[in-house]
Nucleic acid binder design. Structure first.
Length: 259
DNA sequence: ATGTCGGCATTGTGCCGA
């Protein structure tokens, strides 16, 4: 089972790049973030015609997450538990039925800038809810993963210019600590389970020629329960997608599971 | 140093969010 997470930065603006990528890369499951679309205006037929089941959790203009799957999906749940007042569409999960059943959660964690401020408070509160959901996933003792745009640079080695991010909500100590608290529950971060060292990024800003200078950050992550980690055979960042036609500012991060 | 996008409200172009 090949699963990719991809912040596409607007499904309507990315429809060409996204269908080209799906045709070439053929993920079994694509977890999309920042669809920036209502459920009713999401171009689901485009993907259904390519053989994908489509589940969305959208809102107008901003945010929004989706699951595209060539494999059957069961028990789709929209929204991160813990705050019924939260109207931002940032979480969707479903069980993918491969040779094994895998619970798959797609997430778009709040950016949190400017920090400090109400947006940063929202980010940290959202991360506390994430930790609670993560505990429940672990307690189930089944293959499960949480993948998406975490908007967290876990360590200095995950940025080309860490000093430039030191006071940013993506790298502040509280953000890193909240991310680490989730890991320390017992999750495996897929990429770091396979690749060590600096120079691996999943986002390059549109501004200032960041891609051409390889001025990137690694903020798109896949966290796996032990039962999912035991099934992982590969993880990679498809950086070359950033050099394509009309690209997103993020690139896909892939995991392969023996499932 | 802040050089770019996408989407919205709106019909010109400024604002927001990233």
């Amino acid at each position: 089972m090949q699963i990719a997470t991809f912040n596409i930065n607007g499904v309507k603006a990315r429809i060409g790049a996204l269908t080209d990528w799906l045709t070439a890369a053929r993920p079994d499951v694509a977890l999309l973030q920042e669809i920036k679309s209502l459920d009713e205006t999401f171009p689901r037929e485009v993907f259904e015609d390519m053989g994908y089941r489509v589940e969305t959790h959208g809102q107008k203009g901003f945010n929004g997450v989706a699951i595209l799957s060539r494999l059957p999906l069961e028990d789709v749940v929209r929204g991160l538990p813990g705050d019924p007042q939260d109207e931002q569409a940032r979480w969707i999960e479903a069980t993918v039925i491969g040779t094994r059943a895998v619970r798959v959660c797609g997430l778009y964690l709040p950016n949190g800038n400017p920090a400090p401020g109400p947006k940063y408070d929202y980010k940290l509160a959202w991360m506390a809810r994430l930790e609670a959901r993560a505990r429940d996933l672990l307690a189930a003792e089944e293959p499960a993963l949480m993948a998406g745009d975490y908007n967290v640079i876990p360590q200095d080695e995950d940025a080309a210019r860490p000093a430039a991010w030191a006071k940013d909500a993506l790298a502040l100590p509280q953000s890193r600590a909240a991310f680490r608290r989730v890991l320390n529950l017992g999750f495996t971060e897929a990429f770091r389970a396979r690749v060590q060292g600096p120079g691996h990024y999943s986002f390059w800003d549109y501004q200032a020629g960041a891609w051409n200078r390889n001025d990137g950050i690694r903020i798109d992550h896949v966290l796996m329960t032990p039962q999912a980690a035991d099934l992982m055979t590969d993880c990679r960042i498809e950086a070359e997608v950033r050099g394509g036609e009309k690209p997103s500012d993020h690139v896909p991060v892939w995991v392969t599971l023996d499932a």
